[in-house]
Design a protein around this nucleic acid. Structure first.
Lengths: 149, 149
DNA sequence: AATGATATTGATAACCATTTCCATTTATAT
DNA sequence: ATATAAATGGAAATGGTTATCAATATCATT
């Protein structure tokens, strides 16, 4: 992991957690990797270089990072949760197209400006109306991808 | 179940399925009931009057109805799927506010007109761009409800 | 740099929602 | 009424996730 201290280093400590090897490795993977990794994906990837890191720790770390809102947890209907970094230098607001046949997921960033503008407005109104503190939102489109339609 | 033949009667037959007691009972419950029932909720409710109907059949029926797109399946992060009728006389387009602490779910219908307008536009564009046949969408806001915040 | 208090880990076992299996029952066309 | 395939339900299996707990690692303090 070259190139100076990762941007998330201070965060864990800020929340009173310790910076451990498993946490560094998992965060580094999430930071480098593509999208929507499952706990098993992460376990296997990490296991290649750090065979000592167990699946339990992967789950625990993901829970931790989700609570800190460093990552988002998704359910695309394939029976396992999937995780994505929710911030960082290369992060962009996006949503998901989910193929209900083959499970393929397409990230799209089209219209997010308009979308986010409307969603922000809705968020604000809902917060007031229902006295609800909104932290995140998820928008998924479900259908059939090119190959499956 | 008084008041003439339910609106969904023809649908099952149209798909080549048989109209059985369990299917009638489950559909009737979904039609009368409030929202976001889990498979167990449905099993228990149905079980009171029809003890013969098994949990397996509930799951199977829900799968069937989902494939027919008579119901929508949701995951709100509490470890079980939840189901709602997706049409019918009293149905209204709505989305969900999910409390991540207590699991409470609020249905809201505010802004859906604007929202649906934008989403339709996005849907159309995404369909073209990714050659993706979009069937449904889900929008959830996550946060803390009045009591939990 | 060594110590100690305590947070964290990893292996195993438990959990629990959902599925699979399969023998029995039911719906419906004839 | 009968035949035939669809549908059912109970038990067992599946599989992602969580709980348990002894061993280990982190880090503030010395």
């Amino acid at each position: 992991m070259p190139g100076g201290p990762p941007w998330w280093h201070g965060k864990l400590r800020g929340w009173g957690y310790r910076m451990t090897i498993p946490r560094q490795v998992i965060l580094d993977l999430l930071n480098r990797s593509s999208k929507h990794l499952s706990a098993e994906d992460i376990y296997l990837a990490v296991h290649r270089t750090y065979p000592g890191i167990g699946l339990t720790t992967v789950y625990r770390t993901l829970d931790l990072l989700e609570q800190m809102r460093l990552i988002n947890k998704f359910d695309f209907g394939d029976g396992r949760s999937r995780y994505e970094l929710s911030q960082g230098p290369q992060w962009r607001h996006h949503h998901h197209l989910v193929c209900t046949k083959c499970g393929r997921i397409i990230d799209y960033t089209d219209f997010v400006t308009e979308e986010v503008k409307l969603l922000d407005k809705i968020e604000e109104a809902l917060t007031k109306k229902y006295n609800f503190k909104i932290n995140t939102h998820q928008l998924h489109f479900y259908g059939l991808c090119e190959k499956c339609r």
